[in-house]
């Protein structure tokens, strides 16, 4: 009896070791490498794509097409749902994929993106300074120290939202396109007033961040109305912005107990395609404490969820994860 038990324990140990080895193997080629390879391969398939490293400023990435820069607004209406977290992670993720990316903080007066991205001590000039002509765009852009191709344009902390106007914002976005940025991520302030409308005005794509909660869903619905009416695309009669839903702070366990709106519920209510589901996690707070976007710590579920979002955003279909409660083994629960 005893012998058999010992044998069993030994084999379990061996199994665990093997699992660890496999885990290490997987992380020898980290996820970010894979993401970059994927994006490169995809670019090569597009005819005549010139990556930004081999491009002179102002040269289009694809010949014959004036600009392939994409302006993406991250918006929600309601505050505190994860716009800034999402902006930081999406910008970081797209930069990891090798795209030249800038994240602009539109929350004038209450800037936070610089803090979440961990570059608050390097802010000298801001967005409003550039609009007013008090500084050059180059002086205000902060280059990320961890990831190449990633830049932050901080908001002003001292002025109010009226400092932004369509003409000024348009000028800066054009200039960023001229500088060869592939993606311009606009982090919208909460609300539906001037600041939020400025953030969405020039957008080509929108990520609508929503929590599975009544007030957030209602506000998102409201924002969808604004995206369809109060943007330059809507006013020029151009093809409309395609909004994507990002459901954040999702708790599969609560959904299972019937205490939280499910993904299906929110999708049915809002009627826009799902970009991803980000599970509720301590990792988000921990990453903002450190000023390191969560996507950089690939061991967390939040990072995995955001990586999926990046793949989908760059055009790869991926199965949705973190929607159902994960089954944890007895040992997992003991040691996890």
């Amino acid at each position: 009896m005893k012998k058999r038990l010992r044998k069993k324990l030994l084999s379990q140990e061996r199994q665990q070791e093997r699992q660890q080895e496999r885990h290490q193997e997987r992380h020898q080629q980290p996820d970010r490498e894979r993401l970059k390879n994927f994006a490169n391969e995809r670019d090569q398939r597009v005819n005549g794509f010139v990556s930004h490293e081999n491009r002179t400023p102002g040269q289009p990435a694809v010949k014959g097409r004036p600009s392939v820069s994409k302006v993406v607004v991250v918006t929600s209406g309601k505050g505190g749902v994860g716009k800034t977290t999402t902006s930081a992670n999406v910008a970081t993720g797209i930069a990891l994929a090798g795209k030249k990316t800038v994240a602009i903080d539109f929350d004038v007066g209450l800037r936070n993106l610089d803090l979440v991205m961990g570059c608050e001590r390097r802010v000298v000039y801001d967005f409003v300074n550039v609009i007013r002509g008090e500084a050059k765009l180059n002086q205000a852009l902060i280059r990320d120290k961890r990831i190449e191709n990633l830049y932050v344009l901080p908001a002003s902390q001292t002025r109010d939202k009226d400092a932004l106007d369509t003409e000024g914002v348009g000028r800066i976005i054009d200039e960023l396109k001229q500088m060869g940025f592939d993606y311009i991520i606009c982090d919208s302030p909460a609300g539906i007033e001037r600041g939020a409308q400025m953030a969405m005005y020039y957008a080509d794509d929108a990520i609508v961040v929503t929590n599975p909660e009544v007030s957030s869903v209602r506000d998102s619905d409201r924002v969808l109305g604004l995206l369809a009416a109060k943007t330059s695309r809507a006013q020029a009669g151009a093809p409309p912005i395609h909004p994507h839903l990002l459901l954040t702070r999702y708790s599969p366990a609560m959904v299972k107990r019937g205490e939280m709106l499910s993904v299906a519920d929110v999708l049915e209510l809002l009627g826009i395609p799902l970009l991803g589901v980000i599970p509720e996690s301590k990792a988000v707070l921990q990453s903002s404490n450190k000023g390191t976007p969560a996507i950089l710590d690939e061991t967390t579920d939040v990072a995995q969820a955001y990586l999926d979002v990046i793949y989908r955003f760059l055009g790869q279909e991926r199965e949705h994860r973190f929607i159902d409660e994960e089954r944890r083994s007895f040992f997992g629960r003991l040691f996890g």
């Binding site: 909660e213 009544v214 869903v217 209602r218 619905d221 409201r222 109305g225 959904v255 107990r257 019937g258 205490e259 939280m260 709106l261 499910s262 519920d265 049915e268 209510l269 809002l270």
Partner: peptide
């Protein structure tokens, strides 16, 4: 009744009205 289904019912009325 589960609170999630209540939330959904309330929201679908609001959204439909708007």
């Amino acid at each position: 009744p589960k609170s999630a289904s209540l939330a959904k019912d309330r929201l679908s009325i609001i959204v439909a009205r708007e």
